[in-house]
């Protein structure tokens, strides 16, 4: 390939990736952290993550202010009511247009090693890192877990 050819190809690739970035928007909604009970330095974060994108993205790591670490977990149920919390080491895939729902009893972000107990009404700074979109900073409001009510 000639120098001019390489340059042309490089500029095409650049243009393509810039376009991909423009069309690759991560949305985080209905996000909250459940206020942990007294004496428990562990909290769960929930929310709905969407990717307005053409190619899938992947939530690969999470860091929370005032905590030693964050991990992704899935509460999974197997035969005979055995329920396990499985760490998702490869992160969580987010497909274009398919909302990723983190909710009690299912997928959640586990924040461990909290130095101070988050209280309802406050907020926790959380950095979510995506494979393609990069780091996204969000403040998760802290809320008391809602009381369970009968279904309509």
């Amino acid at each position: 390939m000639t120098a001019a050819g390489r340059l042309a190809l490089a500029s095409i690739l650049l243009a393509t990736s810039a376009m991909a970035t423009d069309q690759h928007v991560i949305g985080i909604e209905e996000h909250w952290v459940a206020e942990p009970p007294p004496g428990v330095p562990v909290a769960a974060a929930y929310g709905v993550i969407t990717c307005r994108c053409i190619t899938s993205d992947r939530l690969i790591s999470v860091a929370a202010g005032g905590a030693s670490m964050g991990e992704f977990h899935a509460t999974t149920s197997g035969d005979g009511g055995v329920v396990a919390m499985r760490r998702l080491d490869d992160g969580i895939e987010i497909r274009p247009g398919v909302p990723l729902v983190l909710a009690p009893g299912g997928l959640h972000i586990m924040i461990t090693g909290l130095e101070e107990r988050p209280r309802a009404g406050g907020g926790i700074h959380v950095t979510l890192v995506f494979e393609r979109a990069g780091a996204v900073d969000v403040v998760f409001p802290v809320m008391a877990r809602p009381a369970v009510v009968a279904e309509e």
């Binding site: 459940a34 942990p36 009970p37 004496g39 428990v40 330095p41 562990v42 909290a43 769960a44 977990h73 509460t75 329920v83 919390m85 009690p104 009893g105 959640h108 586990m110 924040i111 877990r145 009381a147 369970v148 009510v149 009968a150």
Partner: peptide
């Protein structure tokens, strides 16, 4: 267990709500 972030609090609140109902 108390350090359980998700399923235990969820179940405790469910059990309390069932008994309440």
């Amino acid at each position: 267990f108390t350090y359980c972030p998700d399923i235990c609090p969820t179940t405790l609140l469910q059990v309390a709500a069932w008994l309440e109902a």
